[in-house]
Every structure is written in C-alpha cells, then in structure tokens.
Design a protein around this nucleic acid. Structure first.
Lengths: 215, 215
DNA sequence: GCAAACATACCAATCGGTTGGTATGCATCG
DNA sequence: CGATGCATACCAACCGATTGGTATGTTTGC
C-alpha cells in the first residue's frame, strides 16, 4: 500500500540481475525458451537491453544462470519443508510427494519445471544449456536419493531397485506429469501421476504394518 | 543407389505437403517448436516459402497438421506391431512397453515425442496447437486404454486403478523419460523408466503364476 | 483454358547483440 | 573533511540478420 507501484516499478540499482533471473523463470516456464525473447525479459524485468547484456554475455549465458537460480530457489524451498524432520526415510519420501501434490494448483506454469521445459527444446542445439538443465534436475534427484538409499537399507523391496534409479524415476514421473498437464490444459495428470507413484512405492517397499503413528 | 540424390532432391510435384510435414516432425523434435523457423522447414523439405504458405495458412496451422500427421505415423506403426496378436491383454501391454524399449537407441530426437515437445512450449501461447497436441497424446493413450480395461476385467489389482488412469500414467512415464534423457544426453533414463513401470504393473496386477508360455 | 501447385521477390517487425554514453557508489589521497 | 579517480551499473539508440507472412508471377496436369 505504501508503494502502490511496487510490482511494476523499476528494480532499484543493483537488483537488475536478480530481476532478470526471476523474469526468466516466470516467462520461460510459460512461453518456452526460444519463445521468450531478450526483449520480453527486459520488459518483464523493467530494465533495458543494455543492462541485460551487461550482466549476461548472451541469451544462452542467461539461461545457464537461470538454471542455477532455479536450483537455488527450489532447493531452498524444499530444504525448508517440514517433511525433512520425519525420522523414517519412507515417510520423508511420501512427505515430499504430498508436498509436491499440494503445490499443484493454479496455472500450469506455476508448478512446472524450468529445467525440464528448457532442456526439452535446447538439448540438441546448446550443449552448455543442456548441461546446466541436466545438473539442475540431477541436483534435485540427488536430494531424494539419500532418502531412498536409507529406505532401501531399512526395508526389503519386492523387486530389485537402486536409490539412484528410484530418485530418477520420481523426477521422471513428475516431468511426465507436467507434459500431460500441459497437453490436457489442466493439472489433474500430475496428481494422478503422483498417486500412481505412491502406489508403486507402497507396493515396492515391504514396510511392516504401521505402528502407533497417526497419519 | 539408383537415385544418389534422393534424400536431397526436390520432392516431385504434389508431394510438397507431405515433405513439409515430415520435415516438421524431424526438425521440431530436434530443435523445438519456436526453435524451428519456416525457412528451416522449407530448406529441409527442399521447397520454397511460396509452397509452404500454399499448403498451410500459418506456421501454427502447420503445427496442427503435423500433430495429426504424428498421430497417423505413430498410430500406423504401433497398429502394425506384432504384440497386438497376443491373446492376453497384459501380454499386449508388456509387449507394447518392450517394443518402446527396443526403439530407444540412437539420437534422442529419434525416439522422443513430437506432441510432447511442442505442447511443452506452446500450451500457454496457442490454444489450437495445445489442443492438437493434447489430442495426439490422448489418442495414443486411448489405444492402451482398451488393453488396460480388458486386463482390469481379467485380473485383480492390489490397489484401485482405472484403465484410463493407467493408460495416461504410461504416457506420463514415457514423456518424463524423454525429458530426463534429454537432460542427461543419453537414452538410459527412458529404459529405466520403462523398467520401473513394468515393475509397477507386475506388482499391481495379481496375475496367476505364468502357465506354459515362454517369455 | 483453367485451377491447383509451386517459385521468386519482397515486406514490416522482431531477433540477439553492440554501440557510446551517463549515473552512481566507493576507495584513495591531500 | 572534500576532491579525484575509477569501476560497476545501467540506458537509449542502433545494427545486420532473421522472423512469419504476402504479392505476384510461372509451371503443370487435366
């Protein structure tokens, strides 16, 4: 209220870089990588082209930085989530999936993945961009991997599986869910996909019948 | 051999439309939708811009037609596959997955999905294109759905599931596998994803121990 | 002869990127 | 303290190339 034009005001001096990165996450998730021009980004970030190319040598360099920015933002978000405190590793995994399901609402670009969107169209044309997006997804999977590793040490599985493979499969299901959601124009496919993944993990891990613990 | 320049020769009169559609499938799967220009398509199809806009009113119209072309090509391919002859619906589903796994080799753009690639970047900017890609994916899922429906009628499942949901989940896993494959720059994630899906279906369907039938 | 199937030449707008310049903050020195 | 020097941050204008699309032919088969 005190600053009515805050959302559309020029970013204060020194904040241009951050404004460009945030604009990149928002615009690229909505329009795709090639579908988002440098001018689009400058308009959204309320800065000029001069400022853009002062901070980033090329559009590709911005993409790589934005990919890292995406890792930072999402990493911080999930690191702060409550499910990390649970003692049982499987509880943490199901907690992660429940949190992801909670986030599925509103427009699709609000919960889809920046790295997945960018790599889908740039994998064959920019090795550097592909690598950065690959690292972002791998980083995210690695956080899940530790929980899966602990779960595999704790419980028997009905079918052989590796922690790395399960973590990657979890990302696969989410990324695929985003594609189907975009194709259908509604978020439901992601929720269905998460539910099926939960069923799979429930069937896979031979967990002893839950002891006195609600939820 | 008899026609050494066949691949680079101009398409004979009357084949321009088909040449453009085929070029669209190949180029867009490699470079993405916005990353593929009309000039790119004309070059690849060995025709001129005049011919392009004679057959398609806009680039978007080409995209919609290419999406239908994608459904035709893949539909014909899978309809002709041997697994359709199997009497057991679950055998047909596992046959489908085995065939998809067989196809996973060579460059990623050779086995990824046109519709999934296009919709990922166009869902928010072109309703018509999104609808066409959604229809392509839905059509493909519908072919699986009949087998899942029959399988659900034949076997008990350990967790409630619908044929529609399972068919969609299968597409989700494949689409997600393509994204991970692009991110890692290698096809392995798709194979892993298919293997996990097979494990899920094996655990889900309470199939009586296999009778005398090898494989 | 005539419509459909193409080709050639062109258009305004936009693309990623560069230019030369100004504004600002900060360290240094007298 | 204040003036000087300098790097960073940013802006407005501009560049050649490319964009999707059009206007005007020319060729071809019935």
């Amino acid at each position: 209220m005190s600053s009515p034009a805050a959302a559309v005001a020029r970013p204060p001096r020194g904040d241009a870089r951050r404004a460009i990165l945030d604009a990149a996450l928002a615009l690229v998730r909505k329009q795709g990588w090639a579908g988002t021009s440098v001018d689009d980004l400058c308009r959204a970030a309320r800065i000029t082209k001069g400022a853009f190319f002062h901070h980033f040598a090329t559009k590709e360099a911005l993409g790589i930085a934005a990919s890292q920015h995406w890792t930072d933002v999402t990493g911080t978000f999930f690191a702060a989530a409550a499910f990390h405190a649970r003692p049982d590793p499987l509880d943490r995994i199901f907690g992660y999936l429940a949190l992801r399901a909670e986030m599925i609402c509103g427009p699709i670009e609000g919960f889809s993945c920046f790295a997945g969107t960018v790599v889908q169209e740039s994998f064959a044309t920019s090795g550097a961009l592909r690598g950065a997006c690959g690292a972002a997804i791998a980083d995210h999977a690695a956080r899940l991997e530790v929980d899966f590793r602990e779960a595999l040490a704790l419980y028997e599985v009905r079918v052989p599986a590796s922690a790395e493979g399960l973590a990657r499969f979890t990302q696969t299901v989410l990324q695929g869910g985003f594609v189907l959601a975009k194709a259908e124009g509604r978020p439901a496919p992601v929720l269905e996909a998460i539910a099926h993944l939960e069923s799979y993990l429930t069937l896979l891990f031979q967990r002893p019948p839950q002891r006195r613990k609600r939820r």
